[in-house]
Amino acid sequence: MTTAPVIELRDVSRAYDDGPPALVDASLTVRAGDAVAVLGPSGSGKSTLLNLIAGLDRPDSGTVTVDGVRVEELGEAGAARYRRAKIGMVFQFFNLLDDLNVEDNVVLPARLAGMGRRAAHRRAGELLESLGVDRHAGAFPGRLSGGERQRVAVARALMNRPPLLLADEPTGALDSASGEDVSRLLRELNADGQTVVVVTHDLALARSCTTRTIRLADGRITADAASGTVAVEPAR
């Protein structure tokens, strides 16, 4: 039985102003349950690829389909609804709201999606407990360690049960011990069936929590291989 794609990019290109293309004829398929790392140096196109998948940007050409949704066809309001329903995002610097406590940060996406208050808080409590930070539910983010804040950010990202979790340099602002903790968490989430795409420049992170590595250079996908193996050039 073939698993349906969660992400399907076909011949996607994107350029900005008069500079070189940020992404060139990119084609990529990610299936449910995959754990994929997107590697490449600064300027390789990693952020552009992530933004296109998340519906934060539109391609100049090509198609972007995520969980059956043609993302490039969405308007601004449709893209916002799409992100609430389909995408969980984890960022390098957490992006938690400092004036909300931990539980209210986690609850926010569900409330924006229309979930009732009681159900949203019940779901948040379950997530915080499963991620080992439930004791901090009433604390404000500034009182937590970096690793704890990233766990809260993961709980928020999972709040609406998205089919896809996108992590953008999730260990970039953490010390090595906290980074290993987050890497293990991503690995455990994937083992439970969560589809994960990690955008990073850190090869060690890619090897530790993903099973497949996509390499970008100058806006092009240059290699696609199982993590930890020698990557090969994709067929032209």
Rank of each mutant, 00 (worst) to 15 (best):
7 I>F: 08
9 L>F: 10
12 V>H: 03
14 R>S: 10
15 A>Y: 00
15 A>K: 04
15 A>M: 05
17 D>E: 14
21 P>S: 11
21 P>G: 08
21 P>C: 10
23 L>V: 13
25 D>L: 04
25 D>P: 00
28 L>V: 10
29 T>F: 02
31 R>S: 15
33 G>R: 06
36 V>F: 10
37 A>H: 02
39 L>S: 02
39 L>M: 15
40 G>W: 03
41 P>M: 07
42 S>L: 12
45 G>V: 12
45 G>D: 09
46 K>V: 12
46 K>T: 10
48 T>R: 07
49 L>D: 06
50 L>W: 05
50 L>N: 02
50 L>A: 14
53 I>D: 09
56 L>C: 09
58 R>I: 12
59 P>R: 09
60 D>F: 10
62 G>M: 12
63 T>F: 00
66 V>I: 13
68 G>M: 12
69 V>N: 05
70 R>T: 15
70 R>L: 14
75 G>P: 06
76 E>A: 14
76 E>I: 13
79 A>K: 03
79 A>S: 12
81 R>W: 01
81 R>D: 14
81 R>P: 00
83 R>F: 12
85 A>L: 11
86 K>G: 03
86 K>N: 13
86 K>V: 15
88 G>H: 09
93 F>Q: 15
94 F>T: 04
95 N>K: 08
95 N>H: 14
95 N>T: 09
97 L>N: 00
97 L>Q: 08
100 L>R: 08
102 V>H: 01
104 D>K: 07
105 N>L: 08
105 N>E: 12
106 V>Y: 01
107 V>L: 04
